[in-house]
Design a protein around this nucleic acid. Structure first.
Lengths: 355, 355
DNA sequence: GCGCTCTACTAGCGCGCTCTAGCACCGACG
DNA sequence: CGTCGGTGCTAGAGCGCGCTAGTAGAGCGC
């Protein structure tokens, strides 16, 4: 009763529904064995240059493309890295763009899985596991440490932008404290004293940034100006806190260190909208240097976390583990760098000389 | 000579490096055949409820998870849809979030592949094909029509947000003309006459929007006010055109229809920054209603393209083709809807009565 | 002639799964 | 008693590939 179209042999180009060509097809047409074709496509030694060329040519002709599924099935050691991201996060977007070329250079494919309000990170990770990823890169995961530890026991995992002490997983993140310290010092040198911080809530790096902010302020003798406003690394929280600050009129801080760039953006929009001048009335520093920050009309001073270096390190990290080079959990800490652009300047009313 | 670890039976939880459990493991431990386990996991008829339960329980115990790679290899009909997106595009992010639940409901997995400046769309599509996707959803592809046609011959493809007359692929997009018309009518009713349009360049839907803008302006007898500013659907182009407009002082248009939300955002930022009031000095309408638009501090009037409906239609479209329900290329046109928020209002100087 | 190494290639098993064909057993019916 | 249809299960053949073991042939030294 099984019905077939069954006439796939005859005519020219591939049509919808035609079986896609396999290695066997290439082998037959090139007059060699299947194994030889496999060799060629794996770029393994043992085939003459002439044959190699011939195989590639035939493959091109019939539109052959190796089947990753079969490939990873056959070689249990799959060449696929899974990436967990939050699809709306611009910094994650930057990271993904950086990850692709690095992984490719190392001979790995990338599989993306997005977490979102309707699809939690566990589910996204499950999908990656189902596809036989050899290792996982987790971008700013909010998964519980215990789950991560369990995951780390199954396959090499690296968390980006977040530390997981205790869990046996590698992590790559920036020295948050250093970035924050540089930002505060920059603002203080410009003459600011009342510098507030909009918190990043439970977001990656937030706890460290918050601590570092307090420490830096104390170091500059500005303990009395310490002020942490609640937030959550979104534009919404930036604009919400802007409203709070704007309501204070002249008692408003002269500078704000936002929890990340998105938060800074929300803040800027709200402040601009009220007709205030940046940096004249308020200086703003972001965190991440996502591509939003360099847009010319935003021109945000921010703390740069180099996505390329993050990506390179993270991929290296997982690949090394897969190759059995390393074993214990390691923490890679990158130095962030303050990038001063147009949103920071001396406060209008208090000159540098006032100190 | 084949060496085995062979002690997988004994100890407790899985350790790194342990072979991941397979169907055979589950079968053995549950005292049934491998085929039975397969049945159960495919939710196919032919197993008693008691056995079903037992199998699931054992699977849970040993942490079994079906291997999608092997699965799609075995059943040539893979249950995977590939999604091509531009990782930085917020509207794409919205779409992806909508696609996941719809696909899941239809029993399909989703594989994401991101295009970026360093990784062109062809490459991204190739990766999807390599993973045996049964069908493809292309978000705002900029691929040449001929390539798409070729792709469409190999597997069901649906393009979102862009029409491809000629190529044998389905498409889902909004009635751009209708959205633009509504937007212009809204502005005209508010009393605007000098309404400019920032073009979306070669972006999806731009050509249609440009044409519709011209037509709508003519329809309202505002031919002499028609003004199309060059752009490309990015924040940059929005802010760049803002500078052009601001330089014109009082001869500036009183309203702008941006090519998309991102462009509108760039425009807004630049305008706010110059201390102008929105909508007092300038009304702005976006296009997409990406999540940026509803952020409270942006509160952008925009033309809504419902991502949920787009996603549902697109997935349905591909799935139907896979099931052999439809055959010819079809075009699904959704009605967009103007959402009036805080960036549109009557122009300051010219009242409604002036007409 | 023999044995050796080196290159270029092939045979064939098995990765973890799906799926068709078929088997054992049950109660019902003539 | 024999045959039927149905239920619950199993055997086993692949899916497209990687990879190990092996083979054929050429070249070389003695």
């Amino acid at each position: 009763m099984a019905e077939q179209q069954g006439d796939a042999e005859t005519s020219g180009g591939p049509r919808r529904g035609d079986r896609r060509p396999t290695m066997t097809d290439v082998a037959q047409r090139a007059g060699v064995s299947r194994a030889l074709v496999s060799l060629v496509f794996r770029d393994a030694p043992g085939a003459s240059d002439r044959t190699r060329e011939r195989v590639f040519q035939v493959a091109e002709e019939i539109g052959y493309r190796p089947d990753s599924a079969a490939r990873m099935l056959a070689s249990s050691r799959s060449k696929v890295l899974g990436v967990l991201l939050t699809v709306r996060n611009p910094f994650h977007a930057d990271m993904v763009e950086s990850i692709y070329p690095v992984a490719e250079r190392r001979g790995y494919e990338i599989l993306l899985s997005a977490a979102s309000p309707s699809r939690d990170e566990r589910k996204a990770v499950d999908a990656l596991l189902g596809h036989r990823c050899a290792g996982l890169l987790l971008l700013g995961p909010t998964l519980p440490s215990s789950y991560l530890a369990e995951l780390g026991r199954k396959l090499p995992v690296v968390a980006l932008g977040r530390r997981f002490p205790g869990a046996d997983v590698d992590s790559v993140h920036t020295a948050e404290a250093k970035g924050v310290r540089e930002a505060i010092t920059h603002l203080v040198e410009l003459g600011h004293r009342s510098i507030a911080h909009i918190d990043g809530g439970r977001g990656p790096g937030s706890a460290e940034r918050r601590r570092a902010y307090r420490a830096a302020m104390r170091k500059h003798g500005l303990t009395e100006y310490i002020r942490v406003l609640p937030g959550d690394q979104t534009e919404e929280s930036g604009s919400a806190q802007a409203k709070v600050l704007l309501a204070e009129g002249s008692r408003m801080p002269t500078a704000v260190l936002a929890g990340n760039d998105r938060c800074a953006l929300g803040l800027l929009d709200a402040v601009w909208r009220e007709g205030l001048q940046v940096p004249g009335d308020l200086s703003v520093v972001g965190y991440d240097d996502s591509h939003l920050a360099h847009l010319s009309h935003i021109d945000l001073s921010t703390v740069r976390q180099d996505p390329d270096r993050h990506a390179a390190l993270a991929v290296q990290c997982v690949v090394d583990r897969l190759d059995g080079v390393r074993d214990g959990a390691e923490e890679f800490v990158l130095d962030p760098k303050l990038v001063t652009r147009g949103t920071t300047g001396p406060p209008r009313s208090s000159g540098i000389m006032s100190a």
